[in-house]
């Protein structure tokens, strides 16, 4: 891998990072929103590094041409280490290891760039959510002061999937009356369940999409919208029917479902 290729590759990777962070905003499909404060400087640093390398190379080339034109005398001052070193190693029988030539493995850096620009992978959806079905995500810990009491009058209360599951877990293991009959509104994507029925799901990301775990809530009493469509479901918490208190399954008796646009941050 030549020096120019390395410098260009650095700039391409930097540009791809800047594009998903500042340009398209697609970075929220992959990492948490706060990560942009790290991504943008890193992308800028890569571009600066590649640009400095290209500029240096360009100046060396002109210096070489000048030296060639003048015929002699410049050898001591012209920097020719990198360029000539690289040429000498092309044969593959050079001795040591010249830092102007990059390793072949570096070409792999093109893959994420290609994936970003060509595929533009979407946020994770029902495929990941149903894969995690065997592993029940632990209910999120309640806030330090506990979940506050909910008003029972007025419209449905919008809450995150995490809060719903946390409250449902508390109601299952403690006092069911605290959560029974309260109208709530959940936003998530549709995951079909094996053997019929569906659940509204949101993926919880600890750090990046690689560690996303699903927060599913089974919806009863409503027809299933298409898989992976984003919906807003109104309904009330459904207490577990069997005698078991802690089921690890959280259900909602739906009263209405509405298709909505995908939220800006698809994760929780």
């Amino acid at each position: 891998m030549t020096r120019s290729a390395q410098n260009l590759l650095l700039m391409t990777v930097g540009a791809a990072v800047l594009w998903i962070t500042l340009g398209s905003g697609e970075y929220v499909n992959y990492v948490k929103p706060g990560f942009r404060y790290l991504l943008a400087p890193a992308g800028a640093a890569l571009i600066a590094l590649g640009a400095a390398g290209l500029r240096r190379e360009w100046r060396e080339n002109t210096a070489h041409e000048d030296a060639a034109r003048e015929g002699a005398g410049h050898d001591g001052t012209v920097r020719h280490d990198e360029a000539r070193g690289a040429a000498a190693h092309d044969g593959g029988h050079g001795h040591g290891h010249d830092h102007s030539r990059g390793p072949r493995v570096a070409w792999l850096l093109c893959l994420p760039v290609l994936a970003i620009f060509v595929v533009a992978p979407p946020a994770l959806g029902s495929f990941t959510a149903s894969r995690g079905a065997g592993r029940a995500a632990p209910p999120p810990a309640p806030p330090a002061q506990g979940f506050g009491p909910l008003p029972r009058t007025g419209g449905p209360i919008a809450m995150t999937m995490g809060e719903f599951i946390g409250r449902s877990y508390e109601a299952q293991t403690g006092d069911p009356a605290s959560f029974t009959g309260v109208p709530v509104r959940l936003t998530g994507f549709v995951t079909p369940r094996e053997g019929g029925g569906w659940q509204v799901t949101r993926l919880k990301m600890a750090c990046c999409a690689g560690d996303a775990i699903p927060f599913p809530v089974i919806v009863r009493g409503l027809p299933r919208p298409p898989a992976d469509s984003w919906v807003q479901v109104d309904g009330t918490w459904l207490p577990p029917t069997s005698g078991k208190a802690e089921t690890g399954v959280h259900e909602l008796r739906g009263s209405s479902v509405r298709r909505v646009a995908k939220p800006k941050n698809p994760y929780e």
């Binding site: 990777v13 990560f35 790290l38 595929v119 690689g210």
Partner: peptide
């Protein structure tokens, strides 16, 4: 799709730490 998303996510996430 899921593979590509996870792949890009891990690369994007690690890149700033790699650079700094």
């Amino acid at each position: 799709d899921a593979w590509t998303t996870v792949f890009v996510a891990i690369c994007v996430q690690a890149l700033p730490f790699l650079v700094f």
